[in-house]
Design a protein around this nucleic acid. Structure first.
Lengths: 127, 127
DNA sequence: GATGGGGGTTCCAGTAGCTGGAAGGTCAAG
DNA sequence: CTTGACCTTCCAGCTACTGGAACCCCCATC
């Protein structure tokens, strides 16, 4: 299977697949002409990576998860720890964004948004 | 005022101040020895930038907001538009994160996290 | 006058995770 | 034989800094 087929089947774009190979997340074989050849197992890995990334896991987390996935003797505790840590980070981000959102929404609400210069948004940034 | 004093008073670190000068957000004067000299107005600008960044505005938004702030003849509608757009982006990010969070929390909840290999988190990434 | 320390300066590289684009090789069809 | 759709590598750029190296400046002290 060529890279574009693997991309289509895994949902991971060709550019990204090459990048993943670059950083050692996948190791497709090569044909005599230099083209990458993807086996089913490569496509499965890519799909796995795509899902993990969609859940917001960083690349190094993905690397670790992939290794655990391939390790039949893994302890699920390790997986859970990685996921729980990530969940905590997401919660922190959400909290930050909510704070921003609240402040910003207040400011937007109180700005008339007409052609006059008076603006509580700017005032708040200034004060 | 030297850069470290300006940093302390504005809350923006020296490195970041230099970066902001680099991209044209502030233009401190220079002494004969090459040291930057910050006036009150520079400190005000930096403080403004610090607050805008803390609300999550991107650098280019900051540039625009700064220009509007300095323009006595601005229309508050412009400011409001920038802020409202940014608010929408924040809302979108929060929504994305919440989706992730929900899925992830479910997975974490259902993983026993012991020393056995069976793991619904990995199963979900695989399937 | 030398020295030491705490400022300041510039410039380069790296961070995360791709993505766009250039320059060029390969292959099947017409 | 050429066209067009693939594929390859490599380099640059994105966001907003941040760390670090190498070097300059100024003041106080010995």
């Amino acid at each position: 299977m060529n890279i574009s087929a693997a991309a289509e089947r895994s949902g991971v774009p060709p550019k990204t697949i090459r990048y993943y190979e670059n950083i050692g997340l996948v190791r497709p074989q090569r044909e005599a002409n230099g083209y990458r050849v993807f086996r089913e197992s490569d496509v499965h890995k890519l799909t796995f990576l795509g899902r993990a990334r969609a859940l917001g896991f960083g690349i190094e987390d993905c690397r670790a998860l992939l290794a655990l996935w391939e390790d039949e003797a893994r302890a699920s505790a390790e997986v859970k720890r990685i996921a729980a840590d990530h969940l905590a980070e997401i919660d922190a981000k959400i909290a930050d964004l909510r704070d921003m959102r609240e402040t910003l929404a207040d400011l937007v609400d109180h700005c008339r948004g007409d052609d006059r210069p008076d603006c509580p948004i700017l005032k708040s940034l200034q004060a």
